[in-house]
């Protein structure tokens, strides 16, 4: 089957049992995406598919034929880190780093959701206007990404700073 990974066309022959996560890590030499719980509870495996964040551990690779997948390896451009990657460094948004690729991919998808007006559980009204990313909004919207080191303060700071200008 054919799909696009980090902007490059890829053609693979894959057993239906293989998750998108295992395809990335074991077959395509892209170990940046992490396997934490492998059951949809931790968010470490978050990738972007056509710009939307999903859990690659719960997706069968065959379901993503023809789609465009972005992993943490595909975020830097021309040798420069994505601005959110730099913000994670600036704000010390990690300790062991294992959840970081999932946190970063998830946050990029999350910011796009807020920009287009998707409310969250803590959004006061449902009018569909772009939602400013307060600390409370970021914590709710990022609740599917666990950090067992507890680096949440740095993570939230990195995300809110990076996307603060996107929605005013």
């Amino acid at each position: 089957m054919d799909l696009v990974i980090n902007g490059k066309p890829v053609s693979v022959d894959v057993d239906p049992r293989v998750s998108l996560l295992d395809l990335l890590r074991e077959r395509l030499d892209l170990p940046g995406t992490k396997k934490g719980c492998n059951q949809g509870a931790c968010g470490a495996c978050t990738v972007l598919v056509d710009g939307e964040r999903i859990l690659s551990c719960l997706g069968l690779a065959v379901q993503y034929e023809g789609r465009s997948v972005t992993t943490v390896e595909g975020l830097a451009e021309d040798g420069s880190l994505h601005r959110l990657q730099q913000a994670f460094i600036d704000h010390d948004g990690f300790q062991c780093g294992y959840c970081t690729p999932g946190q970063i991919c998830s946050a990029i998808g999350m910011a796009a959701e807020a920009r287009r007006g998707l409310p969250s559980f803590v959004t006061a009204d449902l009018d569909g206007d772009p939602v400013p990313l307060s600390g409370e909004e970021v914590r709710e919207r990022m609740s599917g990404n666990l950090c067992r080191c507890g680096a949440y303060n740095g993570i939230v700071a990195a995300i809110t700073e990076t996307f603060a200008e996107d929605v005013r």
Partner: peptide
């Protein structure tokens, strides 16, 4: 479904319920 304008305005309990469930990634899938 949670995001659809008709659901947000006519059935807000449905938008709210969906947004209370699972995580952003899982709701996208």
């Amino acid at each position: 479904l949670a995001e659809h304008p008709a659901v947000r305005s006519r059935f807000p309990l449905l938008s709210r319920a969906i947004l209370a469930g699972a995580s952003g990634q899982i709701r996208n899938m």
